[in-house]
Design a protein around this nucleic acid. Structure first.
Lengths: 226, 226
DNA sequence: TAGATTGTTAATCGATTAACAATC
DNA sequence: TAGATTGTTAATCGATTAACAATC
């Protein structure tokens, strides 16, 4: 458990970054509707958080608003993109071209936010060499070479649980900077590799849990954005 | 913002339920390896939380351990399943049979934990009537009737953003108890309907954010399970 | 018994909210 | 100017960790 000096600048809670991402989503929606300004009150109301929370979250990164006026949407959107690192595009590898992998590859939401899946990998000999919507599936062994040559920084891992740690290891050795993992396992990675993980079964269990405990009036079992 | 009397029993933080789910995942793994007992220390170490956290989390729901001995795996697994509501099976509707929906339908991890996708829905006339691995795709309009007749309690929503709120509305009217939403939008639902949501683009943005801020040594930007 | 580990209370730590001066 | 809304500090609230008596 890493200790940290008391003098370090304001630490940013991870949930703040998640909310910032959602503010961006809503700002894009507002802009599409033709709005030009908004306020912490409006943003908060739309996302189910307090206005103070919105201002605090943005405050971790700078001053983007105008007292009395609110925020200029055309100004705040690029600021948040810069904060999130989505003001540029990212090359992404997709490892594991099964049902989920294929669906993720076809998912339009990634490209819309600057994430380009530029390389596919699998270990199944029957898939290797095949072309999926214009991209060839490469053997996992080629990760090292291709990550470097294609300047890939992020990887999406949709491989079976049993393969996940080994593949992650190869990706790390190839110099990947972040891994988005769908395998139901906690990957052990070096500290300087970023890590986001989704376990679909865990999420569905959460839903069952919430249903079971709604009746028992489970109070603080309150999702962060409802 | 709902107020709550000071006398209410210990409120359960949402993250505690998430961790409990992960404890279960790890316990199943331990059992598969032939282990019969474990301890809060071992569980915590495996999942990157303190032993005190593990005991506290379990403590919200009861006393399952033996001082000096730890926890009996064969005993703790069913206890956690009962807590999560996965000690029985759940009938699930899948709405939106696109790439993601199809992948989710084929995903084995749900069935393995008692979630049975028993009905498929879509609004695309070209999909309606088609059979996907033995299940016929029904029109979204049939939700009301089928949710009741098939005793469906949960729904997975993998429809486009623009359709999500309307479909959710129909599901609620049909008496659904919980919705697992993949559309990038905050659904507005009655309080007694449980809600879990994943926005894949937001998750990938989190990864980009973490990568960008690793260097800037972003301290408390620490994911809950690393 | 001695050693280990639980369940739980108290202490610490961190995140959220309220409040308000600054300012457009 | 008066009204609105920011950025930020202080107060509150809640979650995590440490500590330890109870107990196997």
């Amino acid at each position: 458990m890493q200790r940290r000096e008391k003098t370090t600048p304001p630490l940013i809670p991870k949930v703040a970054a998640t909310r910032i991402s959602r503010y961006l989503r809503y700002l894009e929606e507002l802009q599409a509707r033709g709005a030009t300004t908004t306020s912490s009150r409006e943003l908060g109301a739309a996302l189910g958080v307090t206005a103070a929370q919105v201002r605090k979250d943005l405050g971790y990164f700078g001053q983007f608003g105008y007292p009395g006026l609110g925020y200029k949407i055309s100004n705040l959107i690029p600021e948040i993109q810069r904060i999130l690192g989505t003001d540029r595009s990212w090359n992404v590898a997709l490892v594991g071209i099964g049902n989920l992998g294929t669906a993720l590859f076809r998912y339009k939401g990634f490209a819309a936010h600057g994430f380009r899946i530029v390389c596919l990998f699998d270990s199944n000999p029957r898939l290797i060499g095949r072309s999926v919507e214009g991209l060839v599936v490469h053997p996992v062994q080629a990760v090292g070479e291709l990550v470097r040559s294609k300047k890939i920084e992020l990887a999406i891992l949709s491989v079976p649980q049993t393969a996940a740690q080994d593949v992650a290891q190869s990706l790390v050795e190839a110099g990947i900077k972040g891994i988005f993992n769908f395998a139901p396992v906690l990957l052990s990675l070096p500290e300087d590799v970023a890590y986001v993980s989704i376990d679909l079964a865990v999420e569905l269990e959460q839903l069952a849990f919430l249903v079971c405990h709604r009746e028992r009036e489970l109070a603080k079992v309150k999702s962060p954005f409802e």
